[in-house]
Simulated assay, not measured.
Amino acid sequence: MKFLAFFGHLNIDVSISVQSLPAPGQATGVKQLKEKFAGTAGNFTYVAHSLGLDFDLYSIVGNLSHKRYIQNLEETGINTEHVEIAENESGPVCYIPSDGKEQVAYMFQGPVNNWKASKNFEFGNYNYVNIGTGPVNEYIKIVSIEKRERIVFDPAQEIWYNYNSETAEYMVNHCNMIIMNRKEYAHLLELLNISSNVLASKVSNIVITEGKKGATVIQHEVETNVPGILSNNVIDTVGAGDSFRAGLYTGLWKGYNLVDAVRIGNITASKAIENNINEFNLKFDDILKILNSIKG
């Protein structure tokens, strides 16, 4: 049995640097245009691979836009067996204009909208199945068949616009772990119209990321705060949460309990944002040295 199946996006992020964000009907010049291999699954994958985690990546991309992305993953040594290639399609691509103070984002889903994610999934072959960003109806098919104790509900920003009260409740009733940031978690509670205590009575393991503050673990209704780790020199915080997940799952894979795995996730995220995430090159032993120094 394999350890983890990770579902999510392999975005190409196109950062568009402008002097100022134009009002409707106006135009502005572009100072710099930069492409980055990213997305929830992409950010996770680069870090998890470097840490040595046993996982399979599940995603879909268009061949017109993602040839270099797939080539880069394969040259890095990442298994793309479960990444579907949609012929004559582009995406997913996220366009992000920014003036350095504010930014907007335009997300083109491309083939993700029609991805039959359940079709080629290896049911019963993983200890954990991380249900990330992607097609909700397909994910519901997966969790309706897969064992509940293996399912992790991790919708990221899509909890705001891809889930409603019915689909969110279905996922909660079929998962054993939830991973969200604090705002996403608050929105989930609003969708379900329940308190955190009630949700904790339904789901055995809840991990709430808190940015620089670290994370909160609610396990069997007992809450534990896990402090964050300061970075030496922050280059780019985009993908910090995905890096956190890579560290957390690697910790669980190595036999650590959930709280210590979250500590490992915090450390991993703090180191990942010190450089471009797709250039992350630390090994698990490097993270472990920092963990041991923290725990004394």
Rank of each mutant, 00 (worst) to 15 (best):
A5D: 09
L10N: 15
I12S: 07
S15C: 02
I16S: 07
V18S: 12
V18F: 08
Q19G: 15
L21P: 10
P22Q: 08
Q26F: 13
T28L: 07
T28D: 11
G29Y: 15
G29E: 07
K31W: 09
Q32A: 14
K34M: 14
G39F: 08
N43V: 11
T45P: 05
Y46W: 14
H49R: 05
H49A: 09
H49N: 12
S50T: 11
G52L: 02
Y58V: 10
N63D: 15
Y69C: 01
I70E: 05
N72V: 06
E75R: 13
H82Q: 15
V83D: 10
E84P: 12
A86Y: 01
N88C: 04
C94M: 14
P97L: 09
G100S: 08
V104D: 10
M107H: 14
N113L: 05
W115C: 04
N120M: 01
F121D: 00
F121V: 03
E122R: 11
G124N: 09
N125M: 06
Y128D: 00
N130R: 00
G132N: 03
G132A: 01
T133E: 15
E138V: 00
I140V: 13
I140P: 00
I142E: 05
K147A: 13
R148N: 05
F153A: 02
D154C: 12
A156W: 12
E158Y: 00
W160N: 07
Y161V: 04
N162W: 03
N164L: 01
T167W: 05
T167D: 07
N176F: 04
M177I: 01
I178M: 14
Y185C: 10
L192Y: 04
N193S: 12
S195F: 05
A200Y: 01
K202V: 02
T209W: 05
E210V: 00
G211F: 00
G211A: 01
K212C: 00
G214S: 04
G214E: 02
T216E: 12
V217W: 04
H220D: 15
H220E: 14
E221F: 04
T224F: 04
V226M: 08
I229Q: 04
L230K: 05
S231W: 07
N232D: 13
N233S: 13
N233R: 09
T237S: 13
A240G: 07
G241T: 02
G241M: 09
S243A: 15
R245N: 10
R245P: 04
L248S: 03
Y249V: 06
L252K: 01
N257R: 03
L258C: 10
V259C: 06
V262E: 10
G265C: 03
I267A: 13
I267E: 09
T268R: 02
A269I: 06
S270F: 05
K271L: 15
E274D: 12
N275A: 12
N276F: 14
N278W: 09
F280I: 06
N281W: 14
N281A: 14
D285W: 10
N292S: 08
K295A: 07
K295F: 04
K295N: 11
K295D: 13
